Simulated assay, not measured.
Amino acid sequence: MKTDSIFYRLFLEIPGVYFQLIGKSPTLANSYKFRSVEIKQTAFRLDGVLVPNIQSPDTPIHFAEVQMQKDEAFYRRFFGEIFLYLSQYEEAKYWQALVVFRNRNIEPKDTQPYQALLNSSNVTVVYLEDLGEEAYDNLGLGIVKLIVEDEAKAVQQAKMLSAKATTELAQEAEQQKVLELVKTVILYKFQNLGPEEVIEMLGMEDFKKSRLYQGIKQEGREEGRQEGTLLTKLRVVPMFLELGLTIEEIAQRLDLTVEQVQQASQSQSN
């Protein structure tokens, strides 16, 4: 399951989750803006950087990286990216980093070159396997745990998070952010399901009233059966893009070519 885009959206939409994972107040997110940063003249890209809105000695820059698969070169690359960033952005004086591993088994074994950094207060390492059921008491942490939840429990917990968002978040825009993140996680976990099946599974019937969903259904009714199947798939592309899937992932899910998905994406933009 590819989760980089999910975590990027999660930190972007609910940046307080980052600070909760390092044991600090989520209100600190109000002082930061989240972005993905490409380091010049290299192939490195930092998945998540929280940059202070106002530079001061008390507001360090934060780097976040999520690792879900085994990679013995991870620490070498991650710390290399951080120090390249510091060399190119002179305004960054203080920094902290968060590393999120799916479990302890995928953490690199050879940490000796970076042990001083890992032992310092600059770096926090979190293992998702350590998140207990209490994580679901918080919407942001609950979505993080949902990513690594067993499929047998995932749907039930997703429904719970959806209901929690509806009852606890007063603003509809905030509710939709959480609901879309929950739907995205379920789509990733159940690759054989389409968006309509996920909506029904999670009981998100209100989504069927949206203009996007109605447009998809209308196209399916108006076109012939064979041609309509292709057009319906192409009309689903914007939904998957909104949920954070890549062009390649959408092509694989819908049994389309990358070129078809790109054309559908460009048509939607136009």
Rank of each mutant, 00 (worst) to 15 (best):
I6V: 15
Y8I: 12
L10G: 01
I14C: 09
P15I: 06
F19G: 06
Q20A: 00
G23Y: 00
G23S: 09
S25K: 05
S25I: 04
N30A: 12
N30Y: 09
N30T: 06
S31H: 09
K33E: 15
K33C: 07
K33H: 14
K33V: 15
S36V: 12
E38K: 06
E38C: 03
I39S: 02
K40A: 12
R45H: 01
R45S: 00
D47M: 06
D47R: 00
G48C: 06
G48V: 02
L50W: 02
P52N: 08
P52Y: 07
P57K: 00
P60A: 04
I61T: 15
F63T: 01
F63G: 01
Q67C: 07
D71Y: 01
D71Q: 02
A73V: 04
Y75W: 01
F79K: 03
G80P: 06
I82H: 01
F83P: 08
S87I: 07
Y89T: 04
Y89F: 08
Y89D: 05
E91S: 11
K93F: 07
Y94E: 11
W95A: 06
L98F: 11
V99Y: 00
V99G: 00
V100D: 00
V100S: 00
V100N: 00
F101G: 00
R102Q: 04
R102G: 00
N103K: 00
R104K: 14
N105P: 03
Y114Q: 03
Q115A: 09
Q115C: 05
L117T: 01
L117Y: 00
S120K: 02
V126G: 00
E129D: 15
E129W: 04
D130Q: 14
E133Q: 11
A135D: 04
V144E: 02
K145R: 15
L146Y: 05
V148R: 03
D150L: 10
D150P: 06
A152Y: 12
A154H: 03
V155H: 13
A158C: 14
A158R: 10
A158M: 13
K164V: 08
K164P: 10
A165I: 12
L169V: 12
A170S: 13
L179Y: 02
L181P: 05
T184C: 07
N192Y: 09
N192M: 07
N192T: 09
L193D: 02
P195K: 05
E197S: 14
I199T: 14
I199E: 06
M201A: 09
G203D: 09
M204G: 11
F207N: 06
F207R: 13
K209L: 14
L212R: 04
L212K: 04
I216A: 02
K217A: 15
R225Q: 10
L231T: 09
T232G: 13
K233C: 09
K233A: 13
K233H: 14
V237T: 12
P238L: 04
F240T: 03
L241S: 02
L243E: 05
L243Q: 04
L245T: 08
T246L: 13
T246A: 14
T246Y: 05
I250R: 01
A251D: 10
R253G: 07
D255H: 12
Q262I: 14
Q263R: 04
S265W: 14
S265Y: 14
Q266Y: 13
S267L: 13
Q268V: 07
Q268I: 07
